[in-house]
Simulated scan of single mutants.
Amino acid sequence: MTDSLQTLAGSRPLRRAVVTGGAGFLGSHLCTELRRRGVEVVALDNFLTGNPANVAHLADDPGFRLIHCDVTDYIHVPGDVDLVLHFASPASPVDYLKLPIHTLKVGSIGTNHALGLAKEKGARFLIASTSEVYGDPQVHPQPETYWGHVNPVGPRGVYDEAKRYAEALTMAYRQTHGVDTAIVRIFNTFGPRMRPSDGRAIPTFVRQALAGEPVTVAGDGAQTRSVCYVSDLVRGILALAESGHSGPMNIGNPHELSVLQIARDVIEATGSVSEIRFVGRPVDDPMVRRPDTTLATEVLGWAPEVDWPEGLARTVDWFREAVDVAGARDETGNTVDAGAR
């Protein structure tokens, strides 16, 4: 794996990429890394869950352009495009439970439009799928061959099924239209630029701990998650884009932690005096979640490099400097007190 993403599989030059959801947490990190590697980037975002501030450091870069665009509308990008990275979607329970129809539309209509752009431009296409396609898994750890255990009519179904449909549509474009596609299944990821009020475990815990509030753990905290630092995830995604492999491919950290352990580690890392408070578990909250990353290791030579303590320290430092954690509020004006995903 090279550090410079200058070619795709078959020695095809990679000069210009489109990133949907480019102002979001993951999308903004992808834009940053692509520019670091010399790739021109067009970022599309409707700012529903993304934030232009996430890419403000690229605003004066002539090789970067941010366009306000909803991918459920028709997408038009003038000029050549070599790679389309489709990362537009609400991704946290707080967001997709509030925006269920939009979540389904961006997974279906939005994916269709992004695939259409790749087909029009003859570009490679990579879609951000999710470990949620495995649901509350009955196989552990989860390999790409596992078909999942998903409740399609539960509250989380709008996100799970949007991503499962998006995977099927991606394969249909590959098989019917010959589009060069890839599917990455992303497991829990953390790092700078996460929204403190998005309801996911790590930003919620960090915000609460820094504010001296009780740290809210869902259930008894015995449920497990495998958390990957964002730079490792981005490196794996771009390696998959470069490889020509179609996926699906799991990218995530195979080291498993209980949610209770994550909460305790956050309290220690922040030096907080916060206590842990147990709250009810959300409906269909997975009990275990850990990727089998054998395929990524064998095909890409990829493995995570940033361990949990180091990644957590970097994340806490960013939150201290960049976020008014004490004033973090949801859209209703109420201080957010979410359980952990």
Rank of each mutant, 00 (worst) to 15 (best):
P100Q: 04
P286M: 04
D3F: 10
W318N: 04
G244V: 09
P152C: 03
Y74T: 13
P203W: 03
V84E: 01
L48G: 00
A239S: 14
S246Q: 11
A340N: 13
Y229F: 15
V283S: 12
D265A: 14
M194P: 00
V230L: 13
F190M: 06
L169W: 02
R36Q: 15
K105F: 06
I67C: 09
L85E: 01
D330N: 12
Q175A: 10
A209S: 13
L97P: 06
I183D: 00
S131G: 15
R174G: 05
P155M: 13
A114Q: 01
D292Q: 07
T111C: 01
L104G: 05
R320D: 04
T294R: 15
D307I: 06
W308M: 14
A209L: 13
I202M: 14
D324L: 03
A239P: 08
V19Y: 01
G22H: 00
A17F: 01
V273N: 13
D198C: 08
G148R: 03
D45M: 00
C31W: 00
L257R: 14
Q223P: 06
T204I: 11
R207N: 08
S246H: 11
G280M: 10
A326P: 05
G244A: 11
A296M: 08
A201T: 09
N253P: 10
E305W: 06
A211I: 12
G221L: 08
E305Q: 15
D307Q: 10
T216M: 14
R290D: 05
D136E: 12
V227F: 10
A53S: 13
E310D: 15
H149W: 14
P309M: 12
R314A: 12
A53H: 07
F319V: 03
I262Q: 09
T49V: 08
T49F: 02
L240M: 15
R156I: 07
F125V: 04
A43L: 01
G110T: 00
L312A: 06
G148L: 04
T176V: 15
P78W: 07
R329W: 05
Y96P: 04
T20F: 00
S92Q: 06
F64Q: 04
N253H: 09
P93W: 06
P137C: 08
L85I: 05
K119L: 15
K121G: 10
G271S: 09
V18A: 00
T103K: 03
A313W: 15
P309Y: 12
G339F: 06
D160H: 12
P155G: 09
V215Q: 07
L97S: 11
R329C: 08
H140A: 07
I276P: 07
L126F: 06
R195F: 04
A239H: 10
A123Q: 07
D136L: 06
V81C: 13
R235Y: 10
P137L: 07
E161L: 08
Y134Q: 05
C228I: 11
S246N: 11
L126I: 13
T170R: 01
A162I: 01
A88Q: 00
P137K: 05
N112H: 14
V139Y: 14
I237R: 02
A218S: 15
S258L: 07
T72D: 02
V106H: 01
R289L: 14
V150H: 02
V288E: 10
S11I: 06
L8P: 10
G135Q: 04
G157T: 02
E331H: 10
I276V: 15
